[in-house]
């Protein structure tokens, strides 16, 4: 008998005799006191919570706004020191920031299949987000997406470009959505604040192993 059979047989033989009916799922909004209810609340609650966990938040009204904010954030950093998701909007922003023509970047700078050693020298990772979560101020990353996993775990700064419409109220909405998604992602990461530790004397230190800074440039408004 394999261990699999042994374990399953033992469990079957000794399971509780009383039959249990599945518990009814309790929706987040009846459980949590800080569940945001309206679209306007989504935005304010997200902003409060995201900054409370150490995120840096910039609102942008237009594409030019985004370019200005990103230019300030990457000043002094060469385009070759970035790891960025080959998303058309991100490429357009970076082309503007680094003054390339026609919203295009030279092909060699957009290679996310570089080896770990090269990746480790990247100074900023730039990506889109899958969703933003208001109640906890979290940014959700899901792969397969063109960004992969290393982009949001290896570089010391993670810069996210997203839109206010991507804000959802709480984790219940996220997992309900993902449960029905086909194909499923290979990984889903809910990021709440920048990497941290308080393992030494309970003192909070940011940037334990993951990014020290998580920066979100969030588009609001109609155009673009």
């Amino acid at each position: 008998m394999t261990s699999r059979d042994t374990i399953l047989t033992r469990l079957r033989q000794s399971r509780p005799s009383t039959d249990v009916t599945p518990p009814l799922p309790i929706p987040d909004h009846t459980l949590f006191a800080d569940y945001p209810r309206t679209a306007a609340e989504h935005i304010t609650v997200f902003a409060d919570k995201f900054t409370a966990v150490g995120g840096e938040l910039f609102w942008a009204q237009s594409t030019e706004n985004v370019v200005d904010i990103v230019r300030a954030l990457v000043s002094g950093i060469a385009v070759s020191e970035l790891a960025f998701e080959p998303d058309p909007a991100i490429i357009a922003v970076l082309a503007a920031v680094y003054s390339y023509d026609d919203a295009k970047l030279p092909p060699e700078v957009a290679d996310l299949s570089m080896c770990n050693v090269e990746y480790a020298s990247c100074r900023v990772g730039i990506s889109t987000a899958y969703r933003l979560i208001a109640r906890s101020g979290s940014i959700v990353m899901a792969a397969p997406a063109r960004h992969g996993r290393r982009l949001y775990s290896v570089p010391p700064v993670h810069l996210v470009l997203a839109r206010a419409e991507q804000i959802i109220p709480s984790l219940d909405a996220l997992f309900a959505e993902v449960s029905n998604a086909r194909p499923l992602p290979s990984i889903l990461t809910v990021i709440t604040g920048s990497s941290r530790t308080s393992d030494i004397e309970k003192k909070l230190v940011l940037g334990a192993h993951g990014p020290k800074r998580i920066v979100l440039v969030c588009r609001v408004g109609e155009d673009g």
């Binding site: 299949s113 397969p144 992969g148 993902v178 889903l188 809910v190 709440t192 604040g193 990497s195």
Partner: peptide
């Protein structure tokens, strides 16, 4: 566990690298 609303990284892994993944 630590008096946080959510721990900083909650990763849910559905499998190894899938078609379309750039790493993993």
């Amino acid at each position: 566990g630590s008096g946080q609303q959510l721990t900083c990284y909650n990763s849910v892994i559905f499998g190894p690298r899938q078609p379309g993944d750039v790493d993993g």
